[in-house]
Write a protein that binds this DNA or RNA. Structure first.
Lengths: 213, 213
DNA sequence: TAGATTGTTAATCGATTAACAATC
DNA sequence: TAGATTGTTAATCGATTAACAATC
């Protein structure tokens, strides 16, 4: 009922904490202090403690944090302690890359269906999932109770696909089309704007160039 | 000499301004006020004016901003008024998607070479560029004066590829491997952490769920 | 117990927003 | 000229950092 309202800055840091804790786990490290994490990740120890304490008390004074426990708790915070039924719309290289990626690191995101409008590739099977005609998208999403739709179509069709996904009842959309799509505010939206990212890189290169001169 | 030190927040907004100004251009719109931009993009008019004035005076009091002029100026600010020699390392689906993408929206990022370690695909041609053996990467980068390296290899090999690119003398790296690579601070680095993005989406879905209950 | 490190409050810093004088 | 809108300063807000008491 009472939304705690977590800032976007913290949301962006959480997956990073998770990544490093996973790394420590593979190293067999059992315990870590905020200072050690600070050295590893690059955030201040103070910020790390503040971030964790937004969600609970996960440490032990005088000792530090249990890597295993903290990793599990952050997974819970991120909502990674469950499975998400997922579809990919648009099976070009990007769609296939994302499908493989999600398949490979399979932790909770099950690709239930692939969709495309191109008749030449409909019927093709990728990672045990058949590519279906996009005209079946809405029915499939509704029938199967799909949670997440991944949009890998072009700019022109992205909004229409998003509308269909929302009508079908998805809870979240991961958008790769280079456009800001519009959806109801009770559906989560995460967009990856590759061109924006590339242009930010261009800016940084230019800035470093100017500094040198 | 004197670095103006532009905040990361502004850097992230700049490509977005560019995107919307490009959109206004295709609509044939010649003039826009900070209030109109605010409505369109979602930032406050005050922030928009502040952002622009970090770099210069691009508007005219009582009138607004010339779309064409502002678009050109933002391109200059972003360093998009030049060409970048670019290579892609790793030609799986992701590498090919990025190659196609960069080829399709060809504005300044020329893919000069593609590299992979897989002998089965070396020699294959994508968008007029042949896939070469990764062992030739460093020589190629040095010889051709490559500016940007795009890393689309797996986590295990990403740091080694980055090292090679830096040795070859690139000015910037666009990294898609799910790891924080380490490079000298005079080389620009932009990482796209797909898993972090997906996990942020998961968090947002969970938060919206909890709000509903 | 003494030392270490968290949890948390208070201080600082930076970014965003509001307000308005300048001026087209 | 009057109206509109920028450029810019000042006020506010929020996020980060510092400090330290609590406590393992």
């Amino acid at each position: 009922m009472n939304k705690p309202k977590v800032s976007n800055a913290i949301i962006r840091r959480l997956p990073r904490y998770r990544r490093y804790l996973g790394y420590l786990q593979t190293k067999g490290i059992k315990k870590v202090s905020s200072n050690e994490l600070s050295e590893l990740i690059g955030y201040t120890a103070s910020q790390i403690r503040q971030d964790f304490n937004t969600f609970g008390e996960f440490g032990q004074q005088g000792y530090g944090y249990s890597v295993d426990y903290l990793y599990k708790e952050i997974n819970k915070i991120l909502g990674l302690d469950r499975e998400y039924k997922t579809v990919v719309v648009g099976c070009g290289h990007l769609g296939q890359a994302i499908t493989n990626y999600t398949y490979y690191y399979k932790i909770g995101f099950n690709i239930m269906g692939l969709f495309d409008v191109n008749q030449d590739i409909i019927g093709k099977v990728i990672n045990d999932v058949e590519i279906m005609d996009s005209s079946e998208l809405k029915d499939f999403v509704t029938r199967e109770g799909v949670d997440i739709g991944i949009i890998c179509v072009n700019r022109e069709n992205a909004q229409a696909v998003a509308d269909t996904l929302v009508e079908g009842g998805v809870k979240g959309i991961w958008n790769f089309a280079p456009i800001d799509i519009d959806i109801p505010k009770d559906v989560a939206l995460e967009s990856v704007h590759l061109s924006d990212s590339l242009h930010a890189l261009s800016f940084m290169i230019k800035s470093l160039n100017e500094k040198e001169q």
